[in-house]
Design a protein around this nucleic acid. Structure first.
Lengths: 329, 329
DNA sequence: CTAGGCAATGTTTACGTAAACATCCACTGG
DNA sequence: CCAGTGGATGTTTACGTAAACATTGCCTAG
């Protein structure tokens, strides 16, 4: 910086003003400084900046291995949104989703150049008792529950599930079966609860719940069972991949979709439009989740806010060919 | 740090020594310092550290949107491996794969607290003429070509393709059809080239090349065409998703896999073991690619190395039920 | 018993930046 | 013509750390 200042014939403070875009510099001077910067290949030292300013302009993202497409899309949106706010994103991978690993990530956090943290993780791994956050580091949690303890941004799981069930009921089906996600997942739990509540709220009797583990394979196995249920004319699968397996099982058992059985998925993964038949599903706006995480954490930093709350991102029903009006038999 | 020093009754330099694990501190003193650190909740300021040491202990990763599973797994391995070396990972997302966007990412890089960069990107977006790297920042490129201009780590695409073709020839098939990836992809290009070379090297006549775009849907469309080729008894698909579509098409057309047609994929995505039938495929070791990227960039930093080269990560043939010895007709 | 040596610890300093304060100068209004 | 004003620029300082050098005190060999 001193070299630039000397070459431009100004003081280092003026260089600083130019490099930060501050006012109070003549257009002439600014041009000279910029020219000197270019000539010397000057780039500001961000360590010194961070030291002086007391902030790093960096967000940490803790996520349990980039396992699901949803988390990845959220991460991507966080990175993009952070960049727009002039923030960088540092990744804190958690190899396996155990309490120890999560605690380890949080303690590494303490040594990291990070102003705030976004956690993409189911909340039950964030047992508050064992996790100690560096003071002054704000947290926002995505993909989770427990808005009372943390600020949470998440897809409106319940609303999406409700829309899926209502869509099927509106098509004339007597009831809707549910192919749920694994018990350990809060998202699966909330979707299943909303399915149940919507059915009973409409005076229907919920059929027994069928459980998978999010995988297409588990959807296939469940589908083989559902195909043998003669009363089953409408299924709401808790994600698109299980819906894919379900479609395959129904096809193999000679039950046509949507003529005999209507199927709704959840997520709207890119492939779902190419399923056979194309899948009616609940679109999740991961990009919006990521964006809101960044906005949320930045606003918390500015206000030094203490209060928590949950922001729900609405879903959208995407109607494709896998659902149809129930046929008289 | 001064507070810790005072509480522990030592000088700040001793605190520094303890916090960096340096020798020359009595066990007694060390314990006292550690106790003081805990009591005051001391966290070393990484900005000051970076300023003093002249390095950030951070790697930047530039990647075109986290689009493919392979890139994501590589990124994950990079993050894990970097953490083991005491390095953090900062993400530089590139929204769309245009020259401008890539240039933009590289220029943002100049202001970022990063010691080196790993680029996960096809090389043709890295036209050297328009990209200027900050001096002293080393680069390693994954998923790419052109080891003459950059240090490159990549899966041994050619070797994998060769193994796939040889496996099918060893099973008695006269020749092997190829369902290739899009023309713009170097990976697709190299797989197709190796397929062609292996066939001609064995004195076989390569059938016309069929092209997809990596998607299951494109594999399905290609599969409908291939199903009508009576001579087609063996297909090597350039990725597992296209193989999935291919399997569906063959099934619909009544051509049994593996009795009538053998199919080999590429990637070994988790789902491929659950395909119908489970898919024989070429396993890519993305974790190894990521690990080698980190090792490579760190060693270049230490040696200030200038020479480039390509490191190939071997693939592995995973035999499952989608391939079988050719039947006499 | 003492010089020499070495391990443990303390003191000084510089890393590059930006905030706070100081200075300079041109212009305005009385 | 001069005091006052405000914009442009310069000077000083501190941010938290670790390298380099300085000091202390104890132990050992002669």
């Amino acid at each position: 910086m001193a070299d630039v200042a000397q070459l431009a014939g100004v003081s280092s403070q003026t260089v600083s003003r130019v490099s930060n875009g501050f006012p109070g510099v003549t257009e002439d001077t600014r041009r000279q400084v910029l020219a000197a910067m270019r000539e010397l290949g000057y780039r500001p030292n961000s360590a010194a900046r961070a030291l002086r300013r007391g902030e790093f302009r960096t967000l940490g993202v803790i996520t349990f291995s980039l396992s699901t497409m949803g988390n990845i899309r959220t991460l991507e949106a966080i990175a993009t949104s952070a960049a727009q706010h002039g923030y960088a994103v540092t990744l804190l991978p958690v190899a396996v989703p155990t309490q120890d690993e999560v605690n380890g990530a949080f303690s590494r956090l303490g040594e990291l150049a990070v102003d705030a943290v976004i956690v993409i993780m189911e909340i039950h791994l964030l047992d508050a008792a064992t996790v100690s956050l560096p003071p002054g580091v704000q947290v926002v949690v995505a993909d989770s529950d427990a808005g009372d303890r943390y600020t949470v941004v998440d897809t409106d799981q319940a609303g999406g599930a409700r829309d899926a069930v209502r869509h099927l009921l509106d098509l004339g089906h007597d009831t809707v079966w549910h192919l749920a996600g694994p018990e350990g997942s809060f998202a699966a739990q909330r979707r299943a609860n909303a399915w149940h509540a919507t059915l009973t709220g409409s005076g229907r009797t919920p059929p027994p719940l069928v459980r998978g583990d999010w995988s297409a394979e588990s959807g296939y196995r469940a589908g083989l069972r559902l195909a043998d249920e003669p009363d089953c004319t409408a299924v709401f699968a808790a994600n698109d991949q299980m819906a894919l397996g379900l479609l395959r099982a129904l096809h193999e058992r000679g039950r046509r979709v949507p003529e005999d059985v209507s199927v709704v998925g959840f997520d709207d993964i890119p492939e779902s439009a190419s399923f056979l038949p194309p899948l009616t599903t609940i679109h999740q706006d991961f990009a919006e989740v990521g964006r809101l995480c960044v906005e949320g954490v930045l606003s918390k930093m500015r206000q030094d806010g203490e209060e928590h709350g949950t922001t729900l991102v609405p879903t959208r029903l995407v109607r494709r060919a896998s659902t149809a009006r129930r046929r008289a038999r």
